[in-house]
Design a protein around this nucleic acid. Structure first.
Lengths: 146, 146
DNA sequence: TATAATTGATTTGTGCACAAAATATTTGCT
DNA sequence: AGCAAATATTTTGTGCACAAATCAATTATA
């Protein structure tokens, strides 16, 4: 077989993108049962970690920019999983709070989170390698602080 | 600091997605100079590897489904980088061919491809680890054959 | 204390990514 | 030959991802 000039199977950006697309696609059916998309699920996890935070704090955790978050939060609000409350100290800012239903979702979706990591069954070593390499790239591209 | 239940910095799906987003975002300015997006650039690379192929073959290489490819190919056609020619053997299928301008783009964008891999400066070892792990996941999720 | 600069969030517009349905053609079966 | 199943692509509709522009509120500064 003639060697091809552009070998996708060794291109970092292509591999990361294809693999993340594949994982998000694979878990879509499970999330759909709770009327969630993957980015919406990430925002919910952020709030399960710490409730009643500002949009810019969610942005810092998820790396989603505000233009991405605004519509995601609107959808979560229309599903009654969160509330958007104007901040008292700063009229520009908005506090995002879980509703009762949003809080309850944490237990109900716990198995999805476990599946998320289990299905691909990486070894401890591989897991550690991925974490190290991705975080290194994120720091190099100034998405994260070192 | 209280330990958070959901630690994004060790979640494989989140890391792969954030890192690929960051890489694609980072190289956008360079691609814009040639009026290309990252997915469009991938399709062009596929054609630089082998010209005059069917859409389903591009789909097999890039892992983009046909509903994703159709509009990408339309945009590349309107930029005059490719032509879409009905196949003679099978009236359903379409052959995608590079135009003169599309062929010339290969040399002009060669530096971008090099930057793509160089800027993040992974070691040989890290590069090999990423390739192995991502391909393993892609096989597990049945995107690729083992 | 005006006003300039900054900040938090929303809006607008483009382009994926994907599922599901539609369309047209080809292949397989009897 | 006739018709069902399969195949290649397009269409439709939803939801990111992001840049750029906008808006309102806050802070800094002349």
């Amino acid at each position: 077989m003639a060697k091809k000039e552009f070998d996708f199977s060794t291109m970092v950006c292509f591999l990361l993108n294809s693999t993340s697309n594949a994982m998000i696609r694979d878990y879509r059916p499970q999330l759909i049962e709770f009327d969630l998309t993957y980015p919406q699920y990430l925002v919910m996890m952020t709030l399960w970690n710490e409730d009643a935070i500002l949009i810019k704090e969610i942005s810092k955790e998820t790396f989603f920019d505000s233009g991405t978050l605004t519509p995601i939060l609107k959808r979560l609000e229309s599903k009654n999983y969160i509330k958007r409350v104007a901040s008292q100290e700063d009229e520009r800012a908005k506090l995002i709070q879980l509703t009762e239903e949003g809080i309850n979702l944490k237990e109900k979706t716990a198995h999805i989170f476990k599946d998320m990591e289990c299905k691909i069954a990486l070894s401890e070593e591989e897991q550690a390698q991925i974490v190290k390499i991705c975080n290194k790239i994120l720091v190099k591209l100034e998405v994260k602080e070192s």
